[in-house]
């Protein structure tokens, strides 16, 4: 597929739809497991009861450079934040971020702690917030489904050339 066609924003509609459907069902997920939520994320990936791969999400890529989706699950501390930012910058566009759990959303139970970053959205833009402390694995699956909906209705030209979409 001609990448120039996408970047110029002159993709025909059927082609856009095909591209978006393909993208939404082959999301490579880079897991950034930090705290309790990491275990629930691992349950979603490893447990046969949840099995995130049936949604077309492929966990455990070798490097962030191969991934489309970053799942930040757990407490982001001020010491950890630069590393998250750096690896997010290494991911190729178009890239998406799911913030999993109250800590990554807003600080959670550590809202008044001196060492916790109150929300990962202070350092990287977030597409989907999954609430809960920790969220059940089903909640993460729901978040992935919502993200896939968003990918399906996206204009690739905007996403690939412009600024990342910031969720309100």
């Amino acid at each position: 597929m001609g990448l120039g066609l996408v970047e110029s924003g002159k993709m025909p509609k059927p082609l856009t739809k095909l591209l978006n459907t393909a993208r939404s069902y082959s999301v490579w997920m880079y897991q950034w497991g930090l705290a309790c939520c990491a275990i629930e994320m691992a349950s979603a990936m490893g447990s046969p009861r949840y099995d995130i791969m049936r949604l077309g999400v492929i966990p455990l890529p070798a490097s962030p450079r191969q991934s489309d989706l970053l799942v930040v699950s757990g407490t982001v501390t001020d010491k950890m934040a630069p590393a998250i930012r750096r690896l997010w910058e290494q991911m190729p566009d178009p890239k998406y971020v799911i913030s999993m759990g109250s800590c990554a959303n807003c600080g959670g139970p550590y809202w008044d702690s001196y060492s916790v970053t109150k929300g990962v959205d202070q350092i990287i833009p977030v597409d989907v917030y999954v609430p809960g402390c920790p969220p059940r694995p089903e909640a993460l699956l729901e978040g992935v489904v919502l993200l896939q909906e968003r990918i399906k209705h996206e204009n690739p030209a905007e996403r690939w050339t412009g600024e990342p979409i910031v969720v309100q």
Binding site: A35, K79, M80, Y110, Y114, V116
Partner: peptide
């Protein structure tokens, strides 16, 4: 260590 320090001992004082 320290990438997961959340300050429990200080938080539990409040």
């Amino acid at each position: 260590a320290g990438y997961m320090h959340r300050g429990y001992e200080k938080l539990s004082e409040v």
